[in-house]
Write a protein that binds this DNA or RNA. Sequence first.
DNA 1: CCTTGATCTAAACCTCACTTGAACTTTCAT
DNA 2: ATGAAAGTTCAAGTGAGGTTTAGATCAAGG
Lengths: 156, 156
Amino acid sequence: MHRTDLIAIGELAARTGVAVSAIRFYEAKGLLAALRTGGGQRRFLRADIRRVSFILIAQQMGLSLDEVADELARLPAGRTPNAADWTRISTGLRARIDARIAALSRTRELLDQCIGCGCLSLKKCGLYNREDKAAQRGAGPRYVLGDRAGEIAEVP
Amino acid sequence: MHRTDLIAIGELAARTGVAVSAIRFYEAKGLLAALRTGGGQRRFLRADIRRVSFILIAQQMGLSLDEVADELARLPAGRTPNAADWTRISTGLRARIDARIAALSRTRELLDQCIGCGCLSLKKCGLYNREDKAAQRGAGPRYVLGDRAGEIAEVP
DNA sequence: CCTTGATCTAAACCTCACTTGAACTTTCAT
DNA sequence: ATGAAAGTTCAAGTGAGGTTTAGATCAAGG
């Protein structure tokens, strides 16, 4: 047993690389839940490190925080999530990764054809005669739209 | 020669699937340049359809509009870009796609290991002990955290 | 000529994902 | 017991990537 099962917000921040303000923001969004000390300070479970990791990874997959919340909502309420819970939810993430790799591969294939002719034209290449245009919806930034934008940190 | 080499903003919008407002926004950002009629209306070159395509594709790769602008700045000023120009710039895009696919594959591999143990823990999985932390530049002003890898501890 | 639809500008507004600042309070090692 | 470090709330600000609105003007068909 660990000496201290509860960690302060600063430690959670340090261990996940997320800013303290972001953790408060996540709590406000309902992605995390904290216990409170008598004095009102937040105390997190060690398992929340894992939870924050999941948020970060899922975000990189292009999920919005609301979508992440939906995924996390499938974790059991009341008890600390166990390995099986995480396996189930991580498997869902894996499917998304697969889908993204597949989508990128298709784009690459189309782009290769374009490089051959140097065109990048919509009609000939079909690079943009795909689902994307139809997927236009409402206001807001494009990275929200489905998983098309991709927030994967780029390799320089 | 086409009968009409210049197209109105609405046509450019229709052909690319981008809103008229977005095209004006891109022009204001310097990603596009328009000629003007005597009456002050924008007229685009047909080649700008291709240019907008490039913007959209590059955005899907995760480039910000500023980064897209950098790429586009490498096109020759003064003359209409030709096939060779597009080939050069598209090839750069292809490299990015390759990098992305590789990064996703690594993530998937790590995630597979995690699914095995259900952990998602920082230390054991390495899913977050990678280049990602340093390379954060996703949606929103995410600050780049310092390397405190030595302090990352094991998770229950 | 006249109408109709497309386009113009400028400024305001929007969402997402956070950060920042002000003004305190709590914790904890010495 | 004390002082620094870390924590608290709430409101407002930021930046990317656009959209919306309003009122005026342009271009083209009849």
